[in-house]
Amino acid sequence: MIADMKVEDIVGDYQEVSLQLYGSITRKILYTQIETSYPDGKLIVSTTDPAGIITHVNRSFVEMSGYREDELLGAPHSILRHPDMPPVAFKDLWDTVQRGEKWQGFVKNLRKDGGFYWVKATVIPNVRAGKVVGFTSVRRKPSRTKVDECSKLYPTLF
């Protein structure tokens, strides 16, 4: 399950939009223009089941997302989906990992407080005994150049 965002969680001036997520889920998104910069030296790590439901998060994931761990476990990974991210990027991600390949890209993620943070994400299928049992996503600090490029490119992909 994925709940609508709540006004009381939002920090700063916000805009509202309705976002269509994977699996016919519609979510009310409240988002601000406040960026949290990626912390140096850390990796944000999460694992999902084959359907994209979060099964593991590390401490950096919890800190950067603004959610509590118990709010994240069992939620779809699209809880981080920011309205500025073009759906075509996630289609490419899913098509790639479902072929059993590694996907890499720059992603603008949504925080619980409505703010955002940019990451360089790599997603790989977890293959155990020849079967895909889930996906691991590892994010690292992106360069400002790449973030600026993506900030210009992504609005053209809708």
Binding site: L43, V45, T47, K102, Q104, T122, V123, I124, N126, R128, T136, S137, V138, R140
Partner: peptide, 13 residues
């Protein structure tokens, strides 16, 4: 161990 291998695999890109 499998988790660490997967993690190293994501970094080695």
């Amino acid at each position: 161990m499998e988790f660490m291998i997967d993690l190293m695999d994501t970094l080695n890109t």
